[in-house]
């Protein structure tokens, strides 16, 4: 609904004060789905350029931005290789670069570390931390609570379509006996 892909059965969603389907709102949005099946015949560079084109960027600006992003996700060396031959972690990084191409103000990540090996998970987490440190708002939906405890400032626990708990991660950790599994314990407590 935040992405404007589903229509709410009741209530409304506003994104930057606009309907999520408004082009102006979508222009400030980046999105990484849980399963990012990229077009296997495109190279990493072409994939990012494609999404840049959809975001209305001029070809020259798109090329410059693509090259920056591929460097940022450490894929410059693989820029000319088809993504069909990429590992899951590499494909995930291409998808993240695609989500970031239009310099969004809000980045929505759906299970960003799902299915990744430990090294891939660490790389994606570092990238998200880096983006957040640059001032980007990152909204993550995930079942990987351990990872979320590392990444997030605030959490909301959803159960059966309703927010049943949440707050600042720092507060949740402070109140927990087991600091290492604080978010998992909190989740088990409220659901």
């Amino acid at each position: 609904m935040i992405l404007g892909l589903l229509t709410p059965s009741a209530g409304s969603v506003k994104l930057f004060g606009l309907s999520p389907r408004a082009k102006a709102a979508r222009a400030k949005l980046g999105y990484l789905p849980e399963l990012s099946h990229l077009h296997p015949f495109l190279t990493a560079e072409e994939t990012v350029l494609y999404y840049a084109g959809l975001s209305g960027m001029s070809r020259a600006a798109a090329r410059k931005r693509t090259s920056e992003l591929l460097a940022q996700v450490k894929l410059s060396a693989a820029a000319k290789r088809p993504v069909g031959g990429f590992s899951k972690g590499m494909a995930r990084r291409v998808a993240i670069a695609s989500a970031l191409v239009a310099e969004p103000e809000l980045l929505v990540l759906d299970e960003p570390t799902s299915g990744l090996d430990p090294i891939g998970t660490r790389e994606v987490k570092e990238l998200i931390t880096d983006l957040a440190s640059r001032g980007m708002t990152v909204l993550i939906t995930s079942h990987q609570l351990f990872d979320m405890q590392d990444l997030c400032n605030r959490v909301a626990i959803l159960s059966n379509g309703k927010i049943v708990g949440g707050g600042a991660v720092k507060d949740i950790v402070e109140k927990s006996a087991d600091k290492r599994h604080a978010l998992e314990d909190y989740f088990a407590g409220v659901v």
């Binding site: 849980e34 990012s36 099946h37 999404y51 975001s55 695609s98």
Partner: peptide, 18 residues
């Protein structure tokens, strides 16, 4: 089927152009 349509439609792209 491959979950790519949503990825296209969240962009500020004209659906008719796509």
């Amino acid at each position: 089927e491959m979950n790519r349509l949503g990825l296209t439609l969240v962009r500020p792209a004209h659906a008719f152009g796509v």
